[in-house]
Amino acid sequence: MTLRWFALGCGIIACMLIGLGAGEQWINPFAAHDPMSGTILWELRLPRLLTAFAVGGLLALAGAWFQVLLGNPLAEPYVLGVAGSASAGAVTGLMFMPESAWAMSAGAFAGAWIGIVTVMFFSHLGSSRMLLAGVVLAAFWSAVLALLLALLPEQGLYRAFSWMMGDLSHSDIPVYVLLAAWGVALGCGLLLTRALDMLLLGERHAEALGINVKQLRQRLLLLASAVTAVAVTAAGTIGFVGLVIPHLMRLLFGSLHRAVLPASAIGGGLLLVLADTAARTIVAPAELPVGILTAIIGVPVFLFLLLRRN
């Protein structure tokens, strides 16, 4: 187990160094003495890497929470429609203020919270009904999004689609805010680890073991949704990280949340750093949407581990 933690730590350091060096032009982070290289490394690449790390970690944490909250291993941060409402908000912002740099992020954040408040109305339902309500709400927000995209002027479409497939190049949230959100989210999660572990036994068992399940579910829903809202606002909708990283970490570190949550917060960051590095390097100077790369990198790794474990 210690070896696995060590490997994860080494992995994140290695990915950070590769991410710093790689790009349109390779720059050795230990030998960047000219001002231009320094500017590229420390003012462009490093903030973006840290943004990717924080967003990936937030998505993986939210995924782990949603899976336990809904008692469903297929749950992920966007399952209750928060991504759809955030996307609809982002496109609305773009539609009404196409020149504003902040319009999409502000719209996404507002949209995400509209989605969260809507979902909260269903938090008193059991896991399966809440999941059903979330899936239906997600379909509703998808329809709203499709309508808005149909009405969006042509020049805004590329920006909208690029954002919707995950875009770390224009994050409007300062990197220190994202790192603080990562730390706060992980800290809150660690305070709830024992209650989350109990919830793995089912709601009745958890309640019989002294957990106030109703209160826990509300807190968890709010926490996971807020974290999703921050991640979506920062980088658009990036799929796969929140679904697969918690499972990957359960395979590597076991099911108890005192290990799953920190491992997911780091592992999600690691995957997104890797994916973003690949996304801005493979076809440089152009960029690929990072959401595509998260799936291309993560799926084979996950399937390999799954088969190896069996």
Binding site: Q67, D197, L200, L201, G202, G254, S255
Partner: peptide
């Protein structure tokens, strides 16, 4: 009461630790 769900891979040791 009912047997707890098994989806998240808890081991017997972990189940007993929780109790």
């Amino acid at each position: 009461g009912e047997l707890p769900p098994t989806e998240f891979g808890l081991t017997v040791q972990q189940r007993l630790e929780l109790a």
